[in-house]
Design a protein around this nucleic acid. Sequence first.
RNA 1: GCCAAGGUAGCACAGCGGUAGUGCACCGCUUUCGUAAAGCGGGGGUCGUGGGUUCAAUCCCCAUCCUUGGCUCCA
Length: 650
Amino acid sequence: MMEAVLGGSRHPLKEGAKTGFEALKELPRVGKVIGYKHEGTVYDLHQPFPTTGTVEFVGPDTPEGLDIIRHSTAHVLAEAVKKLYPQVQVTIGPVIETGFYYDFVREGGFKEEDLAAIEAEMGNIVKARKKVRREDWSVAKAVEYFKGLGEHYKVEIIQDLAAKSGQDSVSVYWHNDDFVDLCRGPHVPYTSDIPAIKLMSVAGAYWRGDEKNAMLARIYGTAFASKDGLKAYLHQLEEAKKRDHRRIGTDMGLFSFHAEAPASPFFHPAGAFIYAELQSFLRDLNRSFGYQDVISPLILSQELWKKSGHYDNYRENMYFTEVDERDFAVKPMNCPGHCLIYKTGHTSYRSLPMRLAEFGRVHRHERSGVTAGLFRVRSFVQDDAHVYCTENQIESEITRILEMVRFFYNTLGFTFFVELSTRPAKRMGDEAVWDKAEAALERTLKAARIDFKVNPGDGAFYGPKIDFHLKDSIGRTHQCGTVQLDFQMPGRFELEYTGTDNTTHTPVMIHRAIAGSLERFMGIFIEHTAGHFPMWLCPTQAAILTISEESVKFAHELRAKLESEGYRVALDDSNDKLAGKIKHFQQAKVPFMIVIGAREAEARVVSLRTSSGEQKQGLSVEALLEEFRKQARPAIPKPEALASKTPSNP
RNA sequence: GCCAAGGUAGCACAGCGGUAGUGCACCGCUUUCGUAAAGCGGGGGUCGUGGGUUCAAUCCCCAUCCUUGGCUCCA
């Protein structure tokens, strides 16, 4: 006897149904069904039905159902495009996290204004309720058929598929007899089973993602199980736009960009304040963990970059300059400078680990199309540090760094995930050293009980690395912190220390950053908080608002008192209405507003309002200060204090 | 770099062959007012930059700079 799972409950199922549709006839009607899952694979309802086991029917509002709808919508898009532009070739049209896309071959690409017509044609196809029918063809037949249609990319896909997997048949899906596309499936049974479609944008994309290949015309779209689902998604996009750090940065006057220095931010007083506070938080954390500040120059000779390997491996991202007939480069990284500092003077094993930290400004020439607000810039500061240590100290040093990273992210309220990146194709050094380095990082992560995913081939050219990724408000992830093990550079720079045995050894070098780029980190933090920063980071922490002239004198006294306590306070004693003042400081995202009218002035108390709208009336000045003290910057722990804490990376 | 869209006052936008407009912000005056906008008046733009077409260009054409979305998601 078979079993069916339908609408969350189990039902016995008679054997012998030929298709999903037939099987459904035996079962109670519970909502819409567009496919079924059997042994982990999803099938469409027209496909031959299994004869054993449990079958789970898939509704449109399940993750699998949504994938089916979106994949089918991609096919409908392809049919609509072929109908409107018969000369266009189709390539691939996969489902992505937010919808789907389809890549076409079309001279000149598509224009955004073409989308309306295509969407209308898609609507016709949906309305026509075309049956989506699967057929299995031999590879030979498929190749011949698509060749006949002039669909050369499809032919390439089929031949590739056959060569790679060795399978001798492929599946195709028809819309009635009007349109056929190569596809693994599954699909909705009828085109009318797609409830809500929206084409989003056009873009260029390289065939198979490779710049050497032809540029294809991509159309992005999305589809949902209901009109409301689509509406909610579009609304969410609007909301995300409001949190965009570029918009908030402009509104709050935090930073600007100028053509005079493309992709390089100019921080205004308010933005620079927050930036500097974050920096000093990180500096204090560094010092607490035994790091020492150093400062190294921005421009260093080209020979140095040849020695470090950057010239050979990173040249296309570097800025060069020539002065006095000598070649220089602007540093894209701080490590060679720190190595020169290490090299000065004789080093004993007693001074290891040596932890050198620098808020080092680096310049990297990112390609023009990849820069984005603060997220990807060409000039930025890293909270960089290099730890020189013995091989025996590697694991304890990395553990210490993991603790710092965890404290910093948790304190600012971020969730993150961790990736271990292993040897890339373009690399230096022997395989044995790579083996050792990769194993050391993996061991340390496991010991710290941090979940991680291995990212093969994504390491730096000098060693493997651990990357920390933060999630922003619209689900994008950003690489921030990094820990990189380096067995190469110390040798290249002939770094040495004298060991207990009184002979010279080469130290190991660990590159690490916690925030990564302060610029990018600020961008993420702005979106994370939507501009509502914790009080200790705010340039203006509180605004005193008077109601009428009787309260002005007390307001000034209060400001003097708060400033003498070290708070950054604005005073609005203008003759605007209170509601207007509140609106102004609300939009400026000042966390606290202190309202003072005649009543308060007389009793020498205040009315406190937070930017989230909470109110407390009749607070004494001492009670107000107590409220503020609760918002102080979190205390920086010592390494020993964190070592005992239960690890977590949510 | 490549494909597409865009650049008009500090900000958000409208206008699109006959040399510029709205809202907010800013400045001035009036209003002394209890938790998201009181009223009136005013100043501010060589319409990204360079070239071309035209009697006339913010608008059309070419070039260029900058910004934005996309270029890993394998039928």
